[in-house]
Design a protein around this nucleic acid. Structure first.
Lengths: 143, 143
DNA sequence: CTTTATGCAAATATTTTGCATCAAA
DNA sequence: TTTGATGCAAAATATTTGCATAAAG
C-alpha cells in the first residue's frame, strides 16, 4: 500500500493539490476496501472513521484517485458506478457469474495481442479496453 | 425490418401484451434510428411522429424490446444508458475512438474461442460478454 | 367487460455544483 | 496571506413508479 500511497502523494504534489486529512482517510479506506466499491459504500465506510466527511468529497476524491491511476472505474452495467483499486500495474478483465455475482479477474495475453492487431488493422492506437464475460459458475449450475 | 417487427409482434403475442400505436411508433423509430441511441434521444425522435407519447413509455418499451431480443443495452461508461438494434443475430464488440467517438463494430472468432476456453477453465458457462476497445483513430491521430 | 397500457407528475437514485467557510502551504 | 478543499444543500441527471384514465382484445 505504501507504493500506492506514494503514487497518490506524488500525484498531489505534482499537481499542486493539497494532501488533506479527508483525502488521507478516503485513500486508506478505499485501498483496503477490496474490490468494486461504489461511491456510496465508500462514503459509509469513510464515515466510520470520520463522520464529518461529506459525500461530495468522496466523489471528488474518487475522481482524483482515478486520474492518479490508483483507482479505475468498472462498470457492470447495473446503473451504479463502481471503482476498484489498481493493484499492481496491469489491467485485467472480468468473468462474472450472473447468479451469485462471483467475479474472477484475469488477463489473457493472447486476447490482448489480438486486440492490438485488430485495432491496428483499423488504424487505431489502443489506450485501454474493458472486457466482461458473463455466465454461470459451477456452483450455481450444480446447486 | 419486417423480420424484426415480426419478432416483436410474436413476443407481444406470446406474452399476452398489447400491440399499441405507441409501441408501433417506438419500434419503427428505434429500428431506423441507427446505432446507440439513448432513451432521451429516442423520445425526442418519437415525439416528432406523435407528440403525445410519454417518456416513461419510451423507457418501458425499450425494456420490452430488450427482453424481446430486438434491442440490447450498450454501455460506454459515460453515465448514459444506450441501446442498439440487434441487427442479424450476432453480437459484436466495439472499437471506439475516444477523440471523435467513431465506433467500429467487429466480431473476432479467435477471441470468442479463447473466451469460451477461458470460461470453461474456470468452470463457467458463458451466456454473453461485452468488450470495448478504446483508442484513437487514424484521422484523430493525424489531424 | 376485463386486462393491459398510457401520460403525467411525483418519487427515486445518483452525481455534480455553488458557495460560504476552513485548512494547507 | 493566498490558494485550494470542504461540507452542505440545492441543482442537475437519469430512471422508475403510482395512479387515474384510455385503449386493446
Amino acid at each position: 500500500m505504501q507504493a500506492a500511497k506514494d503514487q497518490f502523494l506524488l500525484y498531489l504534489a505534482r499537481n499542486k493539490l493539497n494532501f488533506t486529512s479527508q483525502r488521507d482517510i478516503i485513500f486508506d479506506v478505499f485501498w483496503s476496501s477490496g474490490y468494486h466499491i461504489s461511491p456510496e459504500e465508500l462514503w459509509q465506510l469513510v464515515k466510520k472513521h470520520d463522520p464529518d466527511v461529506g459525500q461530495a468529497t468522496v466523489y471528488r476524491t474518487l475522481k482524483l484517485l482515478t486520474d492518479a491511476g490508483i483507482a479505475r472505474e468498472v462498470d457492470f452495467g447495473d446503473g451504479v458506478s463502481r471503482y476498484e483499486a489498481c493493484f499492481g500495474q496491469s489491467h485485467h478483465d472480468h468473468l462474472i457469474c450472473k447468479e451469485c455475482g462471483k467475479n474472477i479477474e484475469f488477463v489473457n495475453h493472447k486476447i490482448e495481442q489480438i486486440q492490438e492487431e485488430l485495432a491496428r488493422q483499423h488504424g487505431f492506437t489502443l489506450s485501454e479496453h474493458s472486457m466482461y464475460l458473463f455466465g454461470k459458475c459451477t456452483e450455481c449450475r450444480n446447486p
